[in-house]
């Protein structure tokens, strides 16, 4: 399956994990994130997101990560990103998964 990319950051004021939905628009849930099929488009979006996040004091540690679609929903390739998108596997009552 072709790899997709999404862009993520931690929100500056509270550290919340956020995902880029559109230019200058960040969301808290991976399901709503923009998915990039094209690497060049992902790179361009990442550069813009980094600049915007710093300019607006919105987010820190902005980067892109790999994912696929599983049952039509974004599924990060690495455990690290799955855990960031959901919450600690040892406390399923906490994090984004708790509100799912």
């Amino acid at each position: 399956m072709a790899l997709l990319k999404a862009i993520t950051a931690n929100r500056l004021r509270d550290g919340e994990v956020v995902f880029l939905k559109a230019e200058g628009v960040w969301v808290e849930r991976l399901d709503e994130a923009a998915l990039f099929e094209d690497a060049a488009a992902a790179d361009a979006a990442l550069a813009a997101a980094k600049a915007q996040a710093e300019r607006d004091q919105y987010g820190v540690d902005v980067y892109a990560f790999d994912l696929t679609l599983k049952d039509g929903r974004p599924d990060p390739v690495k455990a690290r990103e799955r855990i960031r998108a959901l919450g600690p596997t040892v406390r399923t009552d906490l994090g984004k998964q708790a509100a799912a």
Partner: peptide, 8 residues
């Protein structure tokens, strides 16, 4: 104060 996976 560190930045970790889910928050500070």
């Amino acid at each position: 104060l560190y930045l970790q996976l889910h928050a500070y």
